[in-house]
Design a protein around this nucleic acid. Structure first.
Lengths: 133, 133
DNA sequence: TTTGGTGCAAAGGCTTTGCAGAAAG
DNA sequence: CTTTCTGCAAAGCCTTTGCACCAAA
């Protein structure tokens, strides 16, 4: 991977903030130094840097909404292959929020936990194919 | 809220599955009973039913990607008002995944925890305005 | 020079919205 | 009868992609 000035600038912007900005925020920032950079380049590089392990993409990016008729607070598992989401009873809820309250000055209202893995059916295929898919 | 046949069908589809389907999946299902229903109606009603507390919208729906130069496994808080995301050190990681493994037959690979609340700045406003927003 | 990267603009996918007709209460 | 809801189609938003030119190694 070539270290172009665009790539370097994007990386530096990310490393220079403790917030977890959107692609567009990064774009606006990088633009100050490289006025001609395009949003497409920012997207491409964010993904490429993430693939290279230099960045992390937070899991808020799946841009389809999912709905659940069970309105109680509970956790979910999502299959990394087929995308299916299952419920999960994990007895840690109270402790988690309590710990979070100690760790931040945010006023915690609720929380979500999502586990990523392979459902039984996909786990077989995953083992069989090497799992890149 | 009027209980139209469309609304009822959508609700029944959601209540009749343990998966956590996307709007489009619901649309395809409801269509079998109401061939003329539109996707827009499904979207409108999913949100309205969620607002009424009859459904829950899972937090995978924020359709902007967010990036983080810290590639280690760590948790986040997101402000419900301004959307800012902060890091959080919560010492529960190992236990959580262990508990999840006991609770499911999925092959857990990783997990994400997101806390929702109000950052200090927004917490003031939140108290002042009644907090619906 | 070679190969990957960039900017631009157009396309893509999911979701929302404007509007006139329809139906619930 | 009033008010909300619906279907349709168009628009919106974020993100990705095709292409010709450009630059890193």
């Amino acid at each position: 991977m070539r270290m172009t000035k665009q790539r370097r600038a994007i990386l530096e912007v990310l490393q220079g903030t403790t917030s977890h900005p959107s692609a567009d925020w990064v774009f606006q920032r990088v633009r100050r130094r490289l006025p001609n950079i395009s949003l497409a380049t920012v997207y491409r590089n964010l993904h490429q840097l993430a693939a290279a392990g230099l960045l992390q993409e937070l899991p808020v990016g799946e841009h389809v909404s999912r709905f659940d008729a069970d309105t109680s607070l509970h956790y979910h598992v999502r299959c990394l292959r087929c995308g299916r989401i299952d419920d999960l009873d994990v007895p840690v809820g109270g402790d988690l929020e309590k710990a979070a309250r100690r760790a931040t000055d945010f006023k915690i209202v609720t929380h979500h936990v999502e586990f990523l893995g392979y459902c039984p059916r996909c786990a077989e295929r995953h083992a069989g194919t090497g799992g890149q898919g």
